[in-house]
Amino acid sequence: MNHPSTPPVPNDLSREYSQAPSADAPPPSLPVRITDGPAIVIPAPPPSNAAGPGVPARVPHLGHAILFVSFAGLTLVLSQSILLGLSHIGQKAAASAMHPKLLVAAMAISYLLTLTTSYFFFPLLWLRSFGNGLQWNFDAAWRNAYKLIPIGLITGFAVQGISSLIPVPKSIPMDNFFRTPSDVWLVTAFGTLLGPLFEEVAFRGFLLPAFAIAYDWLSLPKTPAARERWHNTTGLTVASLIFSAIVSSIFFALLHAEQLAHAWAALFVLFCVSLILTLVRIRTRSVASSTLVHAAYNFSVFLTLFIATGGYQHLERMTR
């Protein structure tokens, strides 16, 4: 009995690839049957575990955000301890720990060290640049600066008007930063330049996408198709962005709670400011844009104080 070397094929597949493609014809994405009718080409999506370049991973996720915040907190504690040890010892140490220049210097060192380290470290995890991973997008901020700066200024002046109508304790820890003109100038430079940059990278760059990614992952249907779609896409749902905007804004307000003596009305105003900054970041897809709005917002506060105190020369005029 003769045994064929290859099994027989059905008639409807017998003419598959029966004609060699020309040199100019592109290769099909999937096998294409040559039939009497027109050929149908169905492009195959890349598998989630495909080697080589493909759909980029979702970053920064919650683990990256925790790492960033933990490193910032550690460097802040270390910088405060070192500066305190170098400047004062003995009985004066406790009082010196609350000195405005010492606190601002410690925060500046911590912020700069955290940002610099993150700039070189996280690209190793993300396999892309730091700015690309955070969606910094400076071009969007530059193109829309004529709109973003007024948004920050108007928001700042509006918040100052609202703050004058809400109850605030007579004495708050923030007042310690406005005792001398040199202290105020230092806080002005820090609050207009470095402060907004670090806070936007932390809250709108890391925490906002991290909470949104976590929300979408936890709400993902436990099916192979859903998991495959998760690995082949990078978009975030509207629900996840709303959830993340609220949660990250709560943390943003709590960051300033001690400075404002836990005045909940003032903290709610800051919560709303954070929502505005988040909206700018989402609409422009640019952390640089929200940073510019944040800087303009802070500048409006210091500008009002500068005018009210005669160029920081009469700080006794300060009223809330």
Rank of each mutant, 00 (worst) to 15 (best):
G161Q: 11
R204W: 06
G195E: 02
L197A: 12
F198T: 08
K170W: 07
L208Q: 09
F190T: 09
F178A: 12
L207K: 00
T180N: 03
D175F: 13
T192R: 04
S171W: 07
S163V: 12
V184S: 04
G191T: 00
F190K: 06
L208P: 03
L207D: 02
V184W: 02
P196D: 06
F206W: 01
T188N: 12
R204C: 03
P169C: 08
G195R: 00
K170N: 14
V187D: 02
F178I: 10
M174E: 14
P196W: 11
D175G: 12
L208E: 02
L194H: 12
T188Y: 13
E199H: 05
V168H: 14
M174N: 12
L197T: 10
P169S: 08
L193M: 12
T180E: 08
P173A: 09
G195P: 00
P181W: 03
E199N: 03
E199V: 06
A202E: 05
L165D: 09
F177W: 00
F190N: 11
K170A: 12
I172C: 10
D183M: 03
F203G: 02
D175E: 11
S171F: 12
R179E: 04
D175C: 01
L207R: 00
T180S: 09
P181C: 04
I166C: 08
L165Y: 10
F203W: 07
P181L: 02
V184Y: 04
P169F: 12
A189L: 15
V184N: 04
